[in-house]
Nucleic acid binder design. Sequence first.
RNA 1: GCCGGAGUGGCGAAAUGGCAGACGCGGCCGGCUUAAACCCGGCGGCUCCGCGAGGAGCGUGGGGGUUCGAAUCCCUCCUCCGGCACCA
Length: 861
Amino acid sequence: MSTDTEARTGRAARFDPASYEQRWRERWEADELYRAHDGDPREKHYLLTMYPYPSGDLHIGHWYAATGPDIVARMRRMQGLNVMFPMGFDSFGLPAENAAIDRGIHPARWTSANIDRMRQQFRTMGCMFDWSREVVTSDPAYYRWTQWLFLQLYGAGLAYRAMAPVDWCPKDQVVLAREQVEGADRHCWRCGTPVVKRDLEQWFFRITSYADELLDFSGLDWPEPIRLMQTNWIGRSEGAEIDFPVEADGVAPIRVFTTRPDTIFGATFMVLAPEHPAVAVLTTPDRRADVEAYVAAARRETEIERMNTERDKTGVFIGAHAVNPMTQERIPIWIADYVLPGYGTGAIMAVPAHDERDYAFATRFDLPIRYVVLPPDGAAPEGEAFVAHTADEVLVESGEFSGMQAADAIGAITRQLTDLGLGSGAVTYKIRDWLVSRQRYWGAPIPIVYCPEHGAQPVPESELPVLLPPDVDFAPTGVSPLQSNAEFLSASCPVCGAAARRETDTMDTFVDSAWYFLRYCSPHDDDRAWDPAAVREWMPVDLYTGGAEHAVLHLMYARFMTKALRDLGHVAFGEPFVALRNQGQILGADHQRMSKSRGNVVNPDDLTSRYGSDTVRLFLMFIGPWDQGGPWNPTGIEGLHRFLGRVWHAAEADLGDRAPWIQPIVVPGMPPPQSLAGEVPGSGGPSAEEVVATGEEMSRALRRATHTTIAAVAEEYSAFRFNTAIARLMELTNAISGARELGLAGTDAYAEAVDTLLLLLAPAAPHITEELWARRGHPYSIHRQPWPSADPALVEADTLELPVQVDGKLRDRLVVTRDTPAAEIERLALASEHVRRYLGGKPPRRVIQVPGKLINVVTQR
RNA sequence: GCCGGAGUGGCGAAAUGGCAGACGCGGCCGGCUUAAACCCGGCGGCUCCGCGAGGAGCGUGGGGGUUCGAAUCCCUCCUCCGGCACCA
């Protein structure tokens, strides 16, 4: 139409994001629009998105992850909450050190250059981060408090040093936490190299003390899959520990853990982990050679071989026997690598009849198999283990317990063993303590010194931070590069002042991120890790967003740390994140994870310079459900750019000459725009000739579209359904365009529709909405406007279109007024020619009406 | 093997017991234009019948079930993605 031509030829302002996006960002920053202030009387809302590792450049995944919570943050602000939405950098870690090794750039320089670049890139997104609260974990002003935290845990016995077989990455030359070893082939989470076991003296955090509490998610609004992953990782098993006496003088009984004490009468042999301390004591001289060979082989094996469930069971008899405490039977003791040293007691009573692994082992080595728990019909299974699945199984050949149901026998047998002093009920977990020491330079030094006289001693708090010396040798040697700096190494004992050696391991970067959300509350406090008043005001985090890949890493560590700090009296709550939402992952176009080495990383800069930030933000939020992610495919970004062009056009169309009220419009032969179709009483369908609508009716239809959208969008944003929220905004925009075609530009209904559209779109597309808000003469800033509220009276249409089904298949539609009684609707439906055709003259068997939804006529089939 | 999530037009998707395919991309037709791009309007699951208006049947990974009615709930199988994996 004519206005389109004007826009094209430049009489009206053109849609040109480059002309305003940067300008508004500078203004927002200058005005500190997004600063969260302590002590604001409004209700606080702490919204947090996982801070990134400063790897170099922001990629499209960062934009994807950040835009969702930014939309919610902006909406919450408009809804009147005092929003804190901070950002920072998880800046310690291996890549910085690898840059030093590979290219000779000091990690500190590499990191800070990357941070500078990424900070700039973040700014072009127009996210409402409060940069005044930025934390950088490699800054001494931050890691000083990470070290303080270590000392708190150490003082409470929650940090300890122990010799332990640990997972070692031969490529990165560093110890890994159990959570950092992935996949069936047990590879390093960072470089993919298969890990090996090593015995090393390492620092641990006692996360196992919190195993039970970590299983409790009550009161948390977290995605079910994440809760399940943590639950499975913690791996709580209930059962019993039982002592099996051994036939050897002066040797303590061997304690086993089992979840099936009811099967003890079927325990026909015992298996120890090759690493079990009793092996050396119990092995008989004639078996010693075989046993030692097996133990040595097991130690040499990589985790891959050992954990391979496919391969045949291996093991050797050690020559000794134990006694089954219930049957008094002599049973042989074997060692086998399918028994793991770190779980339970590292020893099992083998019940081949009722455990698949034991069954495979017994079959392989010809050991006796005795079924003692049978299904109710007594049918003994053949050629396989019978693992109980229901409560109905009954015990046989189990002495006084024979005939008892298995579920009851578990308790009864455990009680008797307890009474006899041979065992007790016990709970075991898969989760291991958190290994936090790393033989690396670029991390927070562990604040411990070793005195020849007094052993490991904590560095006094007054001497924190233990600073990283800039001058070290970065070549990976398996020991921390800090050992190459003599000055760093030498310390004095805090107890006696004698010359002491400084701990040279640094902390896992997940320690840094286990408390950063607390630091955001008072990021500039130099006297303490956080200001208790600020933490009281802001914590806990109301809504946390990030990737699901941190389910058993960061998210569990942060929960542990918070609980430990609570028990130490430093915070008053035990859960850091009340609600959690996970974004999906944006994969490369090749459906693989984006990585520099694959060369499939998408840089958003090209897109933003071409389309502007708003278009990129909208596109990312529109491609699908936010928690789903998917492979990168920029096809369709044009559509979002066009959408913003239509918004621009819609908002410009009623500027200038404000048209007076438009008189009733009759457009013969012109079908109504889709937004108005079906809204016209009596139209009964899209027959163009009949369309006659008054201006009043059309503006009411537009207002209905406006208020319906208000009601929908807040709900969609809150639920992180940005794709459908944007679709609703597109529909409103289309309705506005349709209204403009019919001459409604300049009316109050039109202005209301456009202003509402801008307000609802503002969280998702902050720049264009600010620009148009200003052009329309409204006061700065749109981001400080109250969120619109829907008028329920305007949402309700006075006519309804009801689908009429016959036997569940759509056959006709009825247009009725909202207050039409059900009997009348039924009469109209049955009178329908289409319905009558299917009834074939007979009365319907049933008529089902869902008020306001549909009507279904059931025939006498 | 175990535990999650998913499978819908040419494509991204929407609909979580009530009109399948909203919204967008691509495509086709038309308008604007000397022309093209931009922009605007229209069409749009498949098959069949009809010149047409229209009508009939089929259709949400496969098969079965519950229901007046199923993409949605139940059973079963297949495929893909994520997590765990000899945890006694």
